[in-house]
């Protein structure tokens, strides 16, 4: 930990989205999943994308990661237009994206290996990262031998080891039980305080967004678009106690109101924009 600089205002990790529209599907079934989205995220900011399922959150995140090309508009990070996937833009999915055939250490070391870092050095750095996410002693375990929460910790370590400009997280704690989820949220905030990476965090959980974010970008479905931005005023470091505060209740009411405008009845097929 000591080798990494302590919190300071990060200089990198600015996201700019300028009138971005993203089309999914081919031929006659093609449709616009995200329509005319514009927003900015400052370096080191923690922003949540909140919206009902099917509103295009994953699509937008996939485009920022470089897996999907926008049909119109420009997405850029630190002034560079996003073209292809790059380790500078680390992405964490909900679950099951660790390499099942690599143990935790080798999963984390994958990015280093791709950069040509020597084996000894890789092991060292990977284990340091695993320590950082609280997985001291689990380096030799395969993902199948780790609990869901531990797997997500490995995911985070695997992305952080590449020293990314930003972290893109697609409902990373969505498959965890409530208690584990709370611990993971605390861990993430802790890591964020230390590294001050820009984080764009997708969720459909209002409490989660309010607990984590500096700012919430609320999206709506049909067509998928950005509806409103809400800044979250709570002081940091945040205690879970804020959930009981009046201000929290007020913001939550407001978000609920925004989300409920999308009629909750029409459930959408659980497709995923990466064709997953």
């Amino acid at each position: 930990m000591t080798t990494h600089q302590r919190s300071f205002r990060a200089a990198t990790g600015r996201i700019e989205a300028n009138h971005v529209s993203i089309r999914l599907g081919r031929g006659s079934s093609a449709f616009e999943a995200v329509t005319d989205a514009s927003f900015e995220v400052s370096p080191g900011e923690f922003v949540c994308l909140l919206g009902p399922s099917g509103c295009g959150k994953s699509t937008l995140l996939g485009a920022l990661a470089g897996h999907i090309k926008p049909a119109a508009g420009v997405l850029s990070v630190d002034g560079q237009p996003v073209k292809d996937p790059h380790p500078e833009r680390g992405i964490v999915f909900q679950h099951h994206t660790l390499f099942p055939w690599k143990n935790a250490r080798d999963n984390v070391a994958f990015g280093l290996k791709m950069r040509g870092v020597k084996r000894r050095q890789r092991r060292l750095e990977a284990e340091k990262m695993l320590d950082l996410v609280g997985l001291n002693g689990f380096a030799g375990r395969y993902p199948g031998q780790l609990s869901g929460g531990m797997q997500q910790r490995v995911e985070i370590a695997r992305v952080l080891v590449n020293q990314p400009r930003l972290l893109l997280m697609d409902e990373p704690f969505g498959a965890l039980d409530a208690l584990t989820r709370l611990r993971m949220q605390e861990l993430l905030l802790d890591i964020w305080e230390q590294f001050r990476k820009t984080i764009l965090f997708v969720t459909h959980d209002i409490d989660e967004a309010l607990l984590l974010a500096d700012r919430i970008i609320v999206m709506q479905a049909q067509p998928g678009r950005i509806h409103e931005e809400i800044s979250v005023p709570f002081e940091r470091p945040r205690m879970t106690g804020i959930i009981a505060s009046g201000e929290f209740m007020r913001l939550k009411q407001h978000c609920l109101h925004l989300l409920h405008r999308d009629r909750p009845g029409d459930t959408l097929p659980r497709l995923s924009p990466l064709g997953l």
Binding site: G66, P85, H86, P87, T97, F99, F110, V159, N162
Partner: peptide, 8 residues
């Protein structure tokens, strides 16, 4: 997709 994002 993960591997590509990790610089594979």
């Amino acid at each position: 997709a993960s591997a590509r994002s990790l610089g594979s």
